[in-house]
Design a protein around this nucleic acid. Structure first.
Length: 560
RNA sequence: GCGCCUGUAGCUCAGCUGGAUAGAGCGGCAGACUUCGAAUCUGUUGGCCGGGGGUUCAAAUCCCUCCAGGCGCACCA
C-alpha cells in the first residue's frame, strides 16, 4: 500500500472515531479526504485538508476541527507518523518517521526491474495505435513525437498492469499511394534518359529519386518509355514496399517496435469495408445523395454527414477507417488509444460517431492529439516546407542529435503543448542538456559501484544493512522520491501522460547530483558506506526503470 | 465565421482530477576540481499565472467573455 493511502486511512479512522464519540455529526466519507504532498517550503511529508472540508459540513471553524482531528491522529494505534501539526487555515501536516522512508530501499532491492509496476490495469487489454504515417514519404519530425510518445505510453500502461498491443495502421491503398507510384515512375524515366515531367501534385522530394534509383538498380531500363498505366501495378507496389521498408528502418533506429502492422488495402481485399458499410446500412446510418454514399454522423453530434463513397465510385479514407476501427473494436480490447497529430483533430467527432454507430460506448476510443513540433537552431525556427519537399526528416534529427536525446526531447512536453525542439541544445554535452543530465547521473552511480568493487568493499545483503545510518536530509529526500515512483506510474498511466516521467527523472537526477557533491558515498566508515551504496543502487534502479519506460537508454558510462 | 490546442520569470516549460508565500531548467551575476566521473555542484537575480467577470472557506487550476498565437473546417490521406 502506498503511503498516502495509509495516511488517508489514518485520517478516515480519526474521522470515524470523532464521529462515534459525538464530536462531530458528519459520517466519514473517504471521497472527501484529500491527502497530498505539500509544497517544499512546508516541512512535512503529507498534508490533509480534511478540517476545511469538515468546517463546511459542521459549520464550525476549521482550525478548531483540525485540532480535534489532530488529537485523534496522534492517538492512532498504528503510529507511522512522527509529528502531526496544525498549520495555516486548517491544514494538518504529517511527518512520517524516518524509518518509514528507509523501507523503500528494501523494496527497490527486492523488486529490482519490477519496482514501480502497479496493478491498476488489472490485466485489461489496451491497443495503442500510433505513427501510422502514410507510406508516401519519409517520417518527419512530428512522426517522431508520436512515435516516442506512443511507445512510452505503451510501456507506461504495461508497467501499470495493462496488456498492451502496439499497432501501426498502414494507409497502403488509394490515390495517394498511386500518386507515389506515378511520381517514382516519372523519376525513373528521367533516370533512364526519358525526360518525362513529374506528375502534377506529385511527390517531389529527393527520396522519390532515391526510390526510382533503387528500382532502376533492380530492373535496369526494362520499363523505359513505358507509360505509367502500363506498369502501374509494378511501380506502385514496389515504391510502396521500398517506402515501408524505409519507414520500418527509421522506426527501428528510433527504438520503436510494433506488435502488428495493419494494412488498409487488406480491408478491401477481405471485404471488411463492405461488411462494415453493410452493418451501418442495416442500422440506417447510410444514405445516398448526389450520387455519393453518406454516413449519417450528425446523428452522433458531428457537424455534418460524411461521404464514404464518392460520386466516382471510389471509397473515401473514412470508409476504410470505419472498417479498421470496426476490426479493432471487435478484437476485444477494453479500450483503444489513437495518437494523432493536431492536423487531424477535425476527424475526432466523426470517428467517435463511428464508434457509437457500431454500437460501442464512446469511451472505447481515446484519441490523443499531439501538437506540432517546431525545430529550432540557433534560436531560429528551421523552415519546413513540405511543398518543396524540403522538410527535416526524423532520420536527419536522429542522425544529428542521437536517438536518446531525440526521444527524451519529444517527451519533455505535455502532448497538447507545442514543442520547440532545440537541435543545438539536444547535441550539447553539458548539464544544460536534460538528457545528458539524467544519463550522467545514472552513469555516475555505475561508476561509484565500480569504484566500490575495486576497493573490495563487501556489499551486504540489503537486510543486513544498517539503514538508520542514512540520516542526511539529502538522503531522506532521495528516499522520498524513490518512494513516490509507483504512485507516479499510476497517475501518469491514468492520465495517459508519459511526459511526467521525464520531469521526475530530472528532479531525481538533480537531488542525486547535489547529494553526490555534498557527501562521499565511499568512506572509511564501512557501515555508512554500505548503507549509502544501497541507497544509490536503489536510485540507479529507479532511474533505469523510468528511462526504460521512456525508451531512453541508461548508460553505464558516458562517452567522453 | 465555427471547432480544437496553447498563453505562467528575459527564454523553454512544469503545475491545470481546486488548497498554504506559484516552481524548474536555461540565460544574467558571483563562486567550487589534490575529491567515488566538473557531462557536476553552490549562491543570487527574476512573476498584475494574457485581460475582465463569476463560482468557492480557497482559483494558475472550474464556468462565462474578450484578446493573441498554432492547427483544422473536402465527394484529399
Amino acid at each position: 500500500m502506498t503511503k498516502d493511502r495509509m495516511i488517508k486511512e489514518m485520517v478516515l479512522r480519526a474521522w470515524q472515531r470523532a464521529s462515534e464519540d459525538g464530536k462531530i455529526r458528519s459520517k466519514p466519507d473517504p471521497d472527501k479526504i484529500v491527502v497530498e504532498i505539500p509544497k517544499e517550503t512546508v516541512q512535512a511529508d503529507y498534508a490533509t485538508t480534511v478540517a476545511m472540508v469538515l468546517a463546511r459540513l459542521e459549520g464550525r471553524p476549521p482550525r478548531e476541527l483540525a485540532q480535534m482531528i489532530q488529537s485523534y491522529l496522534q492517538e492512532d494505534p498504528r503510529v507511522i507518523t512522527e509529528r502531526v501539526e496544525l498549520a495555516g487555515p486548517g491544514y494538518l501536516n504529517l511527518t512520517l518517521k524516518p524509518d518509514q522512508w528507509r523501507q523503500v530501499l528494501l523494496e527497490v532491492e527486492e523488486k529490482g526491474k519490477r519496482f514501480g509496476q502497479v496493478e491498476i490495469g488489472g490485466g485489461r487489454r489496451v491497443q495503442v495505435e500510433y505513427v501510422s504515417a502514410n507510406p508516401t514519404g519519409p517520417l518527419h519530425v512530428g512522426h517522431g513525437r508520436w512515435a516516442a510518445v506512443g511507445n512510452a505510453l505503451a510501456n507506461l500502461l504495461q508497467a501499470a498492469g495493462y496488456e498492451v498491443h502496439r499497432e501501426y495502421y498502414n494507409n497502403d491503398s488509394g490515390r495517394q499511394v498511386k500518386l507515389l507510384g506515378q511520381s517514382v515512375h516519372a523519376r525513373y524515366q528521367q533516370l533512364v534518359g526519358n525526360p518525362l515531367p513529374d506528375p502534377e501534385d506529385g511527390y517531389r522530394g529527393t527520396y522519390v529519386t532515391e526510390l526510382a534509383q533503387r528500382l532502376k538498380d533492380r530492373v535496369g531500363d526494362a520499363y523505359r518509355e513505358k507509360m505509367f498505366e502500363e506498369c502501374l501495378g509494378y511501380f506502385t507496389q514496389t515504391a510502396l514496399e521500398e517506402m515501408m521498408a524505409l519507414i520500418r528502418t527509421d522506426l527501428k533506429g528510433f527504438g520503436i517496435l510494433f506488435d502488428s502492422w495493419f494494412s488498409e488495402a487488406s480491408l478491401f481485399e477481405t471485404g471488411a469495408v463492405q461488411n462494415a458499410l453493410d452493418e451501418l446500412r442495416k442500422k440506417d446510418y447510410l444514405y445516398e445523395k448526389d450520387g455519393a454514399l453518406w454516413f449519417r454522423s450528425t446523428r452522433f453530434s458531428d457537424d455534418k454527414d460524411r461521404v464514404v463513397r464518392k460520386e466516382d465510385g471510389e471509397f473515401t479514407y473514412l470508409a476504410s477507417d470505419i472498417a479498421y476501427h470496426r476490426d479493432k473494436l471487435s478484437r476485444g480490447f477494453d479500450f483503444l488509444i489513437n495518437i494523432w497529430g493536431a492536423d487531424h483533430h477535425g476527424y475526432i467527432a466523426r470517428m467517435e460517431a463511428v464508434v457509437l454507430a457500431l454500437g460501442y460506448p464512446k469511451e472505447k476510443l481515446r484519441i490523443l492529439i499531439g501538437q506540432l513540433v517546431t525545430l529550432v537552431r540557433d534560436g531560429r525556427p528551421v523552415p519546413m516546407s513540405k511543398r518543396a519537399g524540403e522538410f527535416v526528416t526524423l532520420r536527419d534529427v536522429v542522425n544529428e542529435v542521437g536517438k536518446d536525446a531525440a526521444v527524451f526531447f519529444f517527451l519533455m512536453r505535455r502532448l497538447d503543448s507545442h514543442l520547440e525542439f532545440d537541435l543545438e541544445l539536444a547535441k550539447r554535452q553539458s548539464n544544460e542538456n536534460p538528457v545528458y543530465y539524467v544519463q550522467y547521473a545514472h552513469a555516475r552511480l555505475c561508476s561509484v559501484d565500480r569504484q566500490a568493487k575495486e576497493q573490495g568493499i563487501q556489499v551486504k545483503d540489503s537486510g543486513q544493512v544498517q539503514l538508520d545510518r542514512l540520516t542526511e536530509p539529502e538522503e531522506m529526500k532521495l528516499m522520498k522520491r524513490l518512494d513516490a515512483f509507483p504512485k507516479l506510474i499510476e497517475e501518469s498511466a491514468r492520465a495517459l501522460e508519459p511526459h511526467r516521467l521525464t520531469f521526475y527523472l530530472l528532479e531525481l537526477a538533480g537531488i542525486l547530483h547535489h547529494y553526490y557533491n555534498k557527501h562521499r558515498i565511499i568512506s572509511d566508515d564501512l557501515t555508512l558506506t554500505q548503507a549509502r551504496l544501497l541507497l544509490v543502487s536503489s536510485v540507479r534502479t529507479v532511474m533505469a526503470n523510468a528511462l526504460g519506460i521512456l525508451g531512453v537508454s541508461a548508460p553505464e558510462r558516458m562517452e567522453r
